[in-house]
Amino acid sequence: MDKSKSSHPYELKDITLPSNAVWHKSTVCPAERAASMGQTPRCIWLTGLSGSGKSTVANALDATLHANGFNSFLLDGDNVRHGLNKDLGMTESDRAENIRRVGEVAKLMVESGLIVICAFISPYKRDRQMVRSMFKPGEFVEVFLDTPLSVCEKRDPKGLYKKARAGVIKQFTGVSDPYEQPESAELILNTTDITVTQGVESILNVL
């Protein structure tokens, strides 16, 4: 079965609010929070295969922003699965819920005035589009790390590709599961051609 052509198991219409849930409007608006920090909030979303360099570039970007007096926060795929999303597996529906939750957290952080950096494989276009739709125009910056599978597999920093090829890890993106490349990312980086510093500079130039 070609999973890239399968119907997506996660539908927004499946989400229902409790009957007594009423939105409470905050007195302090997002624009005022951003103004107090003296910066323009953004969600910078790094997507790409395992080993493409997402976490490395994201961490360097976070450090650079911090060193220059900006208020930022990094959400990393592996780290989030240790807490917020530790109840989720790697099925397509669980991946979708993983990304939805992260998107909601990132949205709250942007509304608080922060520049939030998200490093997630996020292999499905629909999931990434769902997160993009949560933000106002210009708030969401998609960065596609277009590093070839052969390079990612050669790096294999966590030994995951080796385990996937051996059948130890099931549903692994790039091996047994698909990766749907972004069609309209704000920035495309190939980490085989650039340094981490150059990647960070390219992202900063887009902001």
Rank of each mutant, 00 (worst) to 15 (best):
Y179F: 15
D62E: 15
D177K: 12
L65G: 08
T91R: 12
V57Q: 06
G51I: 09
T47Y: 02
D94I: 03
P41V: 11
D62C: 08
I121W: 03
G38E: 01
L160E: 08
G113A: 02
D177Q: 14
L46S: 01
A119V: 00
K125F: 09
D94M: 03
S50E: 04
I117W: 00
V80Q: 07
Y161I: 09
I99H: 06
A96M: 05
K86P: 00
T47D: 04
K163Q: 15
I169W: 04
S50V: 03
G77K: 08
I115G: 01
G51C: 07
A166I: 04
P178S: 12
G167Q: 13
N71C: 00
L145T: 10
E111Y: 08
Q39S: 05
G159R: 05
P178H: 11
L49P: 09
L61D: 06
V131T: 12
R101K: 10
G167E: 13
I99K: 03
P178L: 12
I117T: 00
G38D: 04
G103I: 05
Q171W: 00
N59V: 02
S122I: 03
F73P: 00
M130P: 01
P178V: 08
Y161F: 14
A67E: 14
V116C: 14
S52P: 02
C118R: 02
N59W: 00
F120T: 02
H82K: 13
R95W: 11
V57D: 02
S133L: 11
T47E: 03
L75K: 03
P178Q: 12
M109I: 05
V168S: 12
V116I: 08
S55P: 09
E142H: 07
G77V: 11
N68M: 02
G48T: 04
T64M: 06
